[in-house]
Design a binder for these strands. Structure first.
Lengths: 231, 231
DNA sequence: ACAAAAGTGTTGCACGTACACCCATGT
DNA sequence: ACATGGGTGTACGTGCAACACTTTTGT
C-alpha cells in the first residue's frame, strides 16, 4: 500500500493472554522465546503485526504460529505504548485475551522457530516476565475478573462435562476469594443454562458429584442483550 | 532511538472522543480538518504519535494542539487497526475518551494549523465523519454508557453548581432513556457525595430548584475501592 | 389563575448474603 | 467406621422499580 504519511520507525505487535483451567488451577499460555531480545525467557505469545493484516487477524495468526492454537475468540483489551517498553525500538503492542478449554488432545507446538516451546503455566508464580508482560498480564487478569462479575464467562474454560464444585473452584481462582457453596449453586442453577446429566464423576474416593453440561443455546438467549451493549 | 527491528511503514495515531454537556445536550468535541485527506471535514481530534512520547502523552499533546484544551484526564478505550481505515497508508489509532465540564471561559482554539476550528457538537446528528470515526465514537459512547451504570461519572460533565433535574437530564442523555424522578433523586442523594447549597436556581419562570455541589472528597472515599479494581 | 417544573413516600419484588447439617461413596 | 467432599433451605437486609399528588414561583 502506498503511503503519503511520514515514515516512522514504528512497529506494532500483539500480545496474547490466554487463560485456561487445568488441575484446578488457573493457567495462562506462555512460550519460551527463541530470539533476541530476551532469548530463552518465558513470555506471553506475541509478535509483530504485518503490513496488510488487521490487528485482530494478526493476533490470531501470531497465536497460531507461536503455539499451534487457532480459531479461538480473542478480545482486545488494552494497548501498551510506553516509549521504552521494548529495548530495541519503539514497539506499541495491542493486547488480547481469550478463555479456552484446555483439551488433552490439542497439541501445543510452535510452527515458527521464534518460539522454542509453548505450555500452560499457573498464574500464581509466573516469575519474571520480559518487557512489560507482567503489567499486560495483570491488566488482562483484572479485565477478566471484572467481566466475570457481570457475565458468566467461566464456562469457556471448563471441559464439556463438569461438576458444580469444579465451576466454583474456577470462579474462586479468578475472583481470588472463597464463595459460599449454597449461594453459588443456587445462583448458577437459576440461570437455567446448566443441563444436569445422567452421569456422575468417576474415580474419586468419595461421593461422586453430578456432571453438568453448559447449554450454549440457552446462554446466548439470556445474554445476547447484554452482549450487544458490550463494548 | 536505534532500532534493530524490521522497518515498516506504520504509523500510530490517537483519536479523542471528548464528551461535554451544554444546553441540556450531550456533545462531543470536533475539529474542522485543514489537511488532506478529508480536508474541510468535521472529525474527531486526532493526530500522529511522535517517536519519543508515550501514547498517553501523545493523546494529551494532540488534543491540546488541535483544540487548546489540556490537563484533562483521558482514558484509552480501544485501538482500531483495520488495514484500510486510512486512505493514505497503514495507520493504527488508539482511541481515548474524557468527560469534561464545558466552561464558558475556556477557549477552543487550535494551536497548530492542522485544524481550522474546534467546537462542541451534539452527539445527535453528527453527520458523516471521515475514516472510521463514526465507529470510534460509537464504541466510546458505549463504553461511557456502560461505565455510568456502575460508576457515577456524570459529575465531570456538569458545572460546579447544578440542580438534580440537570443531573437527571444528563443521565438520560447518556443512557438514552427516561428515568423516574423520585427514584433517581433518592439514589443520588443516598450516595452522600452531593452537597446541598443554600442557593437556588435563578432566572427561571417557575419554582426555582435547589443547587447542589459535587463533593469530590466524599466521592473518592466511596469509590476508591471500585476504581482500584477497574482496568 | 395559570403554567411549569420542584419536590416528596410507600410498597412489592428480586437478589445477595449469612449460616450448619445430613448424605453418599470409597477405602 | 471413617474420611471426604456432595448436596440442600431459610431468613434477613438491600436495592431497584412502579407509581401520583402537592408546592412554589413567575407571568
Amino acid at each position: 500500500m502506498e503511503t503519503l504519511l511520514p515514515k516512522l520507525d514504528s512497529v506494532f505487535s500483539t500480545d496474547c493472554v490466554i487463560f485456561g483451567f487445568q488441575a484446578n488451577e488457573l493457567k495462562i499460555l506462555l512460550i519460551d522465546r527463541n530470539e533476541e531480545p530476551y532469548k530463552g525467557w518465558r513470555a506471553l505469545p506475541g509478535y509483530i503485526v504485518g503490513q496488510d493484516e488487521s490487528i485482530d487477524d494478526a493476533a490470531e495468526r501470531i497465536l497460531y504460529e507461536l503455539t499451534g492454537l487457532r480459531g479461538l475468540h480473542m478480545e482486545q483489551f488494552h494497548t501498551f505504548g510506553d516509549v521504552d517498553r521494548h529495548p530495541q525500538g519503539r514497539v506499541i503492542t495491542v493486547a488480547y485475551y481469550a478463555l479456552i478449554r484446555i483439551d488433552g488432545q490439542q497439541e501445543l507446538k510452535p510452527v515458527t522457530n521464534f518460539a522454542r516451546a509453548a505450555y500452560w503455566h499457573p498464574v500464581k508464580d509466573l516469575g519474571k516476565l520480559p518487557f512489560d508482560h507482567q503489567k499486560i498480564f495483570e491488566t488482562g487478569f483484572r479485565k477478566i475478573r471484572r467481566r466475570l462479575s457481570y457475565q458468566p464467562i467461566a464456562f469457556e474454560l471448563l471441559p464439556e462435562k463438569f461438576t458444580l464444585t469444579q465451576l466454583q473452584t474456577l470462579y474462586e481462582a479468578i475472583l481470588n476469594r472463597k464463595l459460599d457453596k449454597r449461594n453459588f449453586r443456587k445462583k448458577m442453577l437459576s440461570y437455567g443454562f446448566l443441563k444436569e446429566l445422567d452421569e456422575k464423576q468417576k474415580g474419586v474416593s468419595y461421593r461422586a458429584a453430578k456432571l453438568y453440561r453448559f447449554d450454549r443455546r440457552k446462554y446466548n438467549k439470556i445474554f445476547q442483550n447484554d452482549l450487544s451493549v458490550e463494548g
